[in-house]
């Protein structure tokens, strides 16, 4: 009897992802869908956040910790104890390790008060994994972009040297490497100064 009921409860659980960065929200949403959740809403517009959330009445709210609008949610928190659907942050001393992981990953979670903890753990765990995946993807992407930019500069510098000094490609590259080593600079820095100098002199 187990799994049917679980999947039922998953599909009826309404989750709001509050994140102005829609590419990250996509990654999180995908993760939650893979885990069996169906009722997921992405809020990217921060103005009118409270109205939107009261209208939506989600069971769980996930928010990026770098979002200053977290404090706006906290207000909802404070006053919502007086209305019918109170919302409380998912923090409990028995779940310290999970909460620490969430804070480190940069994700905050708020849930309807009275909801069973077990039902939330899975969502939070998914969100943590996805947040971490996203940060890793982001830094990999940035590293790739930086490497590409460096390659471009080195190629341009090589071309300039080949033209100006009548060198072959290998000779131009070897000259830059030698200069970089003797000045203890990065190859890309030497390349950049060649490009800058050529621009100034042209």
């Amino acid at each position: 009897m187990g799994w049917v009921r679980v999947s039922n409860s998953l599909s009826t659980m309404k989750i709001a992802v509050v994140d102005p960065q829609s590419d990250r929200a996509d990654v999180i949403e995908e993760g939650l869908r893979d885990a069996g959740y169906r009722d997921i809403h992405h809020i990217s517009e921060m103005s009118g956040l409270l109205e939107r959330l009261s209208e939506l009445a989600p069971d769980v709210i996930l928010i990026d910790l770098e979002n200053p609008n977290r404090d706006v949610l906290e207000q909802m928190f404070e006053v919502s104890r007086l209305v019918s659907r109170p919302i409380a942050m998912f923090v409990d001393d028995s779940d310290m390790s999970m909460i620490e992981a969430a804070v480190e990953a940069g994700v905050g979670a708020y849930v309807v008060d009275g909801m069973k903890k077990e039902r939330i753990k899975n969502i939070l765990a998914t969100a943590i994994t996805r947040f971490n995946t996203f940060s890793r993807l982001q830094s990999e992407l940035q590293a790739t972009k930086a490497a590409l930019a460096e390659r471009k500069v080195i190629d341009r510098a090589k071309g300039i040297l080949m033209k100006a000094k009548g060198l072959s490609e290998e000779e131009a590259y070897a000259l830059m490497r030698k200069t970089a080593m003797s000045q203890s600079k990065k190859l890309s820095e030497i390349a950049q100064s060649i490009v800058t100098a050529a621009e100034l002199l042209s």
Binding site: L65, E66, P68, E100, V103
Partner: peptide, 15 residues
């Protein structure tokens, strides 16, 4: 930090 909620949580959880 960007929010007072973060300040509170990061102190509470030892970050």
């Amino acid at each position: 930090e960007t929010s007072w909620s973060n300040v509170r949580d990061k102190v509470a959880f030892g970050l």
